[in-house]
Design a protein around this nucleic acid. Structure first.
Length: 213
DNA sequence: GGCCAGGCACAGC
DNA sequence: GCTGTGCATGGC
């Protein structure tokens, strides 16, 4: 079991001080790209998502309006490198259409959207919803993914449900407010989730973190 | 060639 | 409610 949650958080926080990255970790945070990325990255390496995003960018269609209105086959072709391209094309296009009809544009979407609305969209589960809320809309929500689950397991915790992990993470982070005093809470959540992902890519069993604790 | 990647929907218990 | 399966490409 983790000896000190604060120590773990500080380690992760320091790892996040990479000036080359988006300060919120997710590339192009605060923009529509996050929405597309959240769907495309499902069970897929980010490296392949980048190719799909680049295809959209190069055809000048990486925006709400064009994805909502282009032929689905065309969208599927553009996002092919990210895998599951038929289902993702359907989900992403449907989502963009619903955002347009429900909110109008990206800015209004971010102001007005709720977690419940997102969960009602096909193709968005809890992780994708929270990723959009935190990284696109800058809401105070911590994203839980496979890596977070694995990290806690490696440290001796036995969480099962998504919301249990999320609640634990947000309460724990809240208890170390002074450590992150120079950042907004939403950005702290964003950065820490990102660092868990980055760390896990290098050290899938979290052996280094376990050594430190 | 097998395995996994920044999940989710849907069927069948 | 929980578990299994399909979705599909690309890099190691």
């Amino acid at each position: 079991v983790i000896q000190s949650s604060g120590e773990l958080l500080e380690i992760l926080y320091k790892m996040g001080c990479d000036n080359d990255r988006d300060p919120w970790w997710w590339p192009q945070s605060g923009s529509f790209e996050v929405i597309a990325g959240a769907v495309l990255t499902q069970n897929t390496k980010w490296q392949n998502v980048e190719k799909a995003l680049a295809n959209l960018q190069n055809s000048d269609t990486l925006n709400l309006k064009d994805i909502a209105s282009m032929p689905r086959e065309k969208l599927a072709g553009l996002i092919k490198p990210s895998g599951f391209y038929n289902t993702k094309a359907k989900y992403l296009q449907n989502l963009c259409q619903n955002i347009q009809s429900g909110f109008g544009d990206f800015t209004s979407f971010c102001e007005g959207v709720s977690r419940e609305w997102l969960l009602g969209q096909k193709g968005l589960g809890e992780e994708s919803c929270d990723a959009i809320l935190n990284y696109a809309c800058y809401r105070e929500i911590f994203v839980v993914d496979r890596y977070t689950h694995r990290l806690l397991s490696a440290c001796g915790y036995e969480f099962e449900r998504y919301e249990d992990i999320q609640q634990w993470a947000m309460e724990t982070i809240g208890g170390y407010e002074e450590v992150f005093a120079d950042m907004e809470l939403a950005q702290v959540y964003a950065r820490l989730h990102g660092m868990i992902v980055e760390y896990a890519k290098e050290d899938k069993k979290f052996t280094k973190i376990q050594e430190w604790l």
